[in-house]
Design a protein around this nucleic acid. Structure first.
Lengths: 137, 137
DNA sequence: CCCCGGTAGTTCGTAATGCAAAGCATGGCG
DNA sequence: CGCCATGCTTTGCATTACGAACTACCGGGG
């Protein structure tokens, strides 16, 4: 069955990339989740609940996560004047710099793999991944 | 830059699939790592150290992981007659059944995504993923 | 205006994950 | 036999994650 081979390939690819991300995070003492938080916050300023939903985590998990990142000066909590219950989260300058830096490393780590494809195959792969991914179920 | 788009797509794809796997594992009280262990052991009988290396985890982490899986009757430890220091790990029948069952669910969960591609695009995607993945660095 | 249910986050208790360092048993070499 | 290397386990610690209980705030109805 073709779709079995595709499922296998997707799962293998997933753990491969997870390995790269985990390693790069670990070099900065960041878990996969923390790294993902930084990645998400690069271009967003969500409230706690939104971020939790995005990550698929419980609100209570996020409190601790943001606590630790805040203690390290990577993110900050902001009060929302419209509704004083909500807490907005955003990157500090240090957090933004770290995020960009790690993104560069991810890019660097994946470059040898990517270079195995010629440019038109890269475009093709981007297209196929977009087709497969968007709104999964 | 095309490769930026590809890096983004690979990372997004990764977290998407991780989400699916995590959810399916959680329904059976299995972490992503435990699920991965079951997946790996479907067609292998490695020693502890091999499995740890495969997962990118410390040996000591694996002891606990296998302890818990063994307590639940999913895996077993076997003695290696050639070298009595070595511990081989393998699935019990229950573990194998669970692994196959979850693989089916993963397949099922990814089917709507996969069906968004026509068969020739699926083959193409499998080929591209294989090209990108194999021996990454 | 005040009460009241609902929403946003935090706190607390617990289990699992992961690492590093130390320990135990076995293997293999001189 | 002595000794070091290897394979795994144990122990101590921080992080991750969940659920339940708690606090603070919002908005509507009486």
């Amino acid at each position: 069955m073709t779709s079995d081979a595709l499922v296998d390939a997707l799962v293998r690819n997933t753990f491969q990339v997870v390995g790269v991300l985990t390693r790069i995070g670990a070099e900065r003492d960041l878990s996969l989740t923390q790294l993902r938080v930084l990645g998400i916050l690069r271009d967003r300023r969500p409230r706690m609940t939104e971020l939790a939903a995005f990550l698929g985590l419980d609100k209570s998990t996020l409190s601790g996560l943001i606590d630790r990142a805040e203690r390290r000066g990577l993110v900050a909590r902001g009060k929302n004047p419209q509704d004083r219950r909500v807490v907005d989260v955003f990157l500090t300058p240090a957090g933004l710099e770290l995020a960009e830096q790690m993104y560069g490393e991810v890019r660097h780590a994946l470059t040898p793999a990517i270079n195995r494809l010629d440019p038109q195959d890269r475009d093709q792969l981007v297209q196929l991944l977009h087709a497969v991914m968007h709104s999964p179920g």
